[in-house]
Design a protein around this nucleic acid. Structure first.
Lengths: 341, 341
DNA sequence: AATTGGTTCTGAACCGTTACGGTCCTTTCA
DNA sequence: TGAAAGGACCGTAACGGTTCAGAACCAATT
């Protein structure tokens, strides 16, 4: 029976035809994929765990790029890609337990997420992306800290000393407002924590007291958040000369807010982002470009490449500092500040 | 055993603790989801079949919107969403057979696609979207023909009689060039066929000989195709006053090409799209807006709503004609043409 | 003491497939 | 003609759960 469908060479064409005929006559719909998976111990799919509502992934350009890369890798391998529903509000990890997959890709979830813990308990290979290196599973990511450090150095060389920051959510709880030093350090999102830490390091080295720098957090990740975050920072300290955002989406929102206030970018205010999305490129945004598609593809390849599973691998992709039209020397000139009070 | 995990009320807490303890000690990783699926006859996932390389879906804004809506519906139901790899080049339907799912959503594939045929043979509920009504499975879509008819009427009322068309692929074979009347009629993509037919009907009613209208087809769906398609139409007949594109993405590309030629839109050339994507909105594109997200959500709901499975349902969502800044009367004025030779 | 009722626990059947090994039949060659 | 070899076919045992019937046990009632 099974052979008739899957192994035509194991039996005579005549028998095969007869088997298939009677199968059709009896209304047999073909081998059941689930039973096959049970027997062969292969599900033919990899699971993707996202921290957000599934639908969020389709709104964030960086996430879409990652998804595209991952889908590409899966397609090459003829594997399905299962989007696992993981509502961050409910702590319901049943969906992780229920997922019939040969492996998991975990993309940018908080490091204390119960879904992540549930994935790690499953006896299947796993790749984490934009997460801390767990040492036990494969990882792919970028040097968020170093990239942001470099961006900060650029701003510092332009003469910026009084800056503000708008960042994405730092933990699972909603905190739309200013961020304490403690919260920055304890951030559960690896990516955000490292970007902030890169900034803090660079500016501290330049003699700036980082604890005095206004850092505003936004739970939702969209341009509206970028705008309101920028407003909150500018209200707190109208004297800042640069607004550093930890994503392009936030930066684009910040630019809208700057325009609303009549601030010219970069003459009156420098704005920077992170990611290198298309819309940012079109706006001439100064940012760090990261290879989101490659990240997805690398994650997929790592997961599907059975060889060398001996010890966990860690892949770091390279980023590129893009100096666009939204960064420039602070109003009044760099020199004034260099030698000022 | 099973009860210890899933039915805590069926046994005493003491035994449950003991069972779970020894399970942990033996390194038992929890119930196997595949075995459970086999027994319960529920896979906990729905499959999505797309005609294109999986990764294409993440480049097309309309497809992303659909995906988002579908993901939303799945999330609400706690169901996974399996992206089934269906390489349109190879006729390999094994991926469809291998997919362990409780149902399929089929989105905009050619009506002669072998993958679609394979899905219909599987004994699971199916919803087709942007496809002809098969009568045997649920369907969700819009009135492509009527919407395009209305758009055409708008152009006709402005005075346009000499027009050109750029459309998406009409069949599985690549044909980057002009389209015969035969090919238009026999188009295997339901959506494109109906949009063209709506145009043909409206312009025929206005006395235009549709067989003389240049219609150019592009296999790849991106702005570059829109630009080159527009170029091909304009080269063939530089006198046309309106360029009708069957998608916003193509229309945006056409606008680029118009600008390259020094044609002002809409003064020298009217350009229209279809879909109502964000980028088109920002460009002030005249287009038909369709509720892509709602389409995805409706497809998911239809599939996951077990009730009233008696006879196939068909859902038509409504569209809206958006008159933007890219359409206007033809150069020389409408009247001149109305009463001209 | 026997019946009844209720709860907790155990064992076996079943889901549908694939892998494996054994039987049988045909062919080939000494 | 007989033995060996090989191909075609078939039967059966897992795979790892869920479910359900019924056994075992305890307490309360007659």
């Amino acid at each position: 029976m099974s052979n008739a469908y899957n192994r035509p060479d194991q039996l005579s064409p005549e028998l095969r035809r007869r088997v298939l005929d009677t199968a059709r006559r009896l209304g047999y719909p073909g081998p059941d994929p689930v039973a096959r998976s049970l027997r062969t111990r292969k599900a033919g799919a990899v699971g993707l765990l996202l921290t957000e509502n599934l639908s969020y992934a389709f709104r964030d350009p960086a996430a879409i790029g990652f998804l595209e890369g991952l889908a590409l890798a899966c397609e090459d391998a003829g594997t399905g890609l299962l989007l696992v529903p993981a509502n961050p509000e409910r702590e319901d990890v049943a969906s992780v337990h229920r997922a019939g997959v040969d492996g998991f890709v975990v993309y940018s979830v908080p490091d204390d997420d119960p879904h992540l813990a549930a994935v790690l308990e499953r006896p299947v290979p796993t790749v984490v992306c934009d997460q801390p290196d767990l040492g036990t599973v494969d990882r792919v990511g970028i040097d968020d800290r170093g990239a942001m450090y470099e961006l900060a150095k650029h701003l510092i060389s332009l003469g910026h000393r009084r800056v503000g920051v708008v960042c994405m959510r730092l933990a699972r709880d909603r905190n739309d407002g200013f961020v304490t030093a403690d919260r920055q350090h304890a951030a559960h999102f690896h990516v955000q924590r490292n970007r902030l830490s890169g900034l803090a390091e660079a500016f501290s080295e330049a003699g700036v007291d980082w604890s005095q720098v206004p850092v505003v957090e936004r739970f939702d990740h969209n341009t509206a958040s970028g705008a309101s975050g920028a407003a909150q920072v500018l209200d707190k300290d109208p004297q800042i000369t640069a607004l550093i955002c930890t994503s392009d989406v936030l930066a684009l929102g910040a630019m809208t807010e700057a325009a609303r206030r009549g601030l010219r970018v970069p003459h009156d205010l420098t704005v920077t982002g992170f990611d290198g999305i298309r819309a940012g490129e079109e706006a001439g945004l100064t940012t760090v470009r990261q290879p989101v598609l490659e990240k997805g593809r690398a994650a997929g390849k790592l997961l599907l490449d059975a060889s060398e599973r001996s010890r966990p691998r860690s892949v770091n992709l390279s980023t590129e500092l893009i100096i666009g039209k939204t960064s420039g020397p602070p109003r009044g000139g760099a020199e004034e500040r260099w030698f000022g009070p």
